[in-house]
Computed example of a mutant assay.
Amino acid sequence: MTTRNKTFIILAASTLAVASAGFFTWRNTNFLGPDSFCQNTLTTSQLEEVLGQGRLTQNSPDEGTSDVYDFHCSLQRASILSERQSTLSIDLTPETAAFPFQTRTWKEPSNMSYLVDSFTGAVSETKGWAILPDSCWEKIPMSTGNKSVPVVELNLQGGTSSRSAMAHTLVRVTQHVTETVGCSAQVSTTAPVRLIGPTESSERTDASNACGLTGFRLPAGMLLQGKLRPGTERFTTSGGTTSACDLFLVGGDEITVTFSASQDATIVDTIRRSGTMRDLELAVCRNHEMYLGVSVNDPYADLAGEDSVERLTAAKSEALQSFKAALMQQKNCA
């Protein structure tokens, strides 16, 4: 082989190696890509905390086309190191009443970690919500003149993230929205977000002291006259203003009854605005209003059947009063 041929082979191999390295860098990092996304709210490094390292693509326009303020952003992370593509959707959307505790979207609220000393909100490894302060409600058309309130929601698909990273992202976006519409709240976007999360694992339910509350037990009606019995439970640890307890009952497929409570003023005001008091109540504890609620999931409702709606309504009312009495005693509300 001549010297010229050897030189050509070496140059070709070097060129291929450089090109391969460049392609690898391009596909697995955000090299030469945008530095910020979602109306300049989130930086590349901040998004990598949630989505992981890879090529970031924004799938939605950065600015709305109407005169009405809105915030919608969808981001996708792709990498040749992983077949899975992660997508993070961020939306400003209207919600009503006790949506974090009584809707299909936010089922099993005991599995959420609730923000403390920040916006009113919660996160898990794949989703999060934050209610904008009430000073913002009349400034955003979606909440003007009706019973809903504006909520920032995160939804992560194709992967999971740490709860702290989800919380930081939620706070940054919510703070951006409040500043944009002129109702800014004094919340730090750089300090660690304090979270109150669930118990580490589901625990066996003490039928006489459910949800860790002395004297709280489900009435017979909630157990559908013997069709169901207590199984395990998971509830929010102490230390915050909002908590939830999910009771996983035995006797059917994924049967769950949820109890929730909050002394967070924004949650209480959200419920008052909705005007809906079904399966919930507002009480007073130590001069602060407190929300209390009960809900059942779809498998429970299916098992109960349509012919027992009145009995179920009465049973939920009885259960809510029992929950209220036990919780208020624990909090020394009297």
Rank of each mutant, 00 (worst) to 15 (best):
G251D: 10
I267N: 11
L11R: 04
L327K: 02
T3P: 05
R217V: 02
V18R: 03
Q46T: 05
R204N: 11
V171G: 03
E83W: 10
S143M: 03
K316L: 13
H176V: 02
P150L: 00
F248N: 14
A301V: 09
F101T: 15
S162M: 07
V257L: 14
C285I: 12
L320C: 06
T242F: 01
T276M: 10
L195E: 11
W106A: 06
S188H: 05
T43H: 06
K107S: 14
M222L: 14
L156T: 09
A334H: 08
L228K: 03
T241Q: 13
I271F: 03
T57K: 04
L170M: 07
G52M: 05
H288K: 15
E289Q: 15
R27P: 06
P61H: 04
P141S: 13
R273P: 00
F99E: 12
T44I: 06
T237V: 12
V151C: 04
G128S: 04
D91M: 03
M112H: 06
R163C: 07
I140Q: 01
E83N: 13
H72G: 12
S317P: 05
Q76L: 09
K324L: 06
I80C: 05
D269P: 00
T241D: 14
V152A: 01
E318K: 00
V173I: 10
S79K: 00
S243N: 09
G159K: 01
V68M: 09
P141K: 12
F216D: 10
M328S: 11
L249G: 08
P100G: 01
L56T: 06
S243K: 08
L282Y: 06
L88G: 02
T44Y: 05
F119G: 05
M166Q: 12
D246K: 04
Q186S: 15
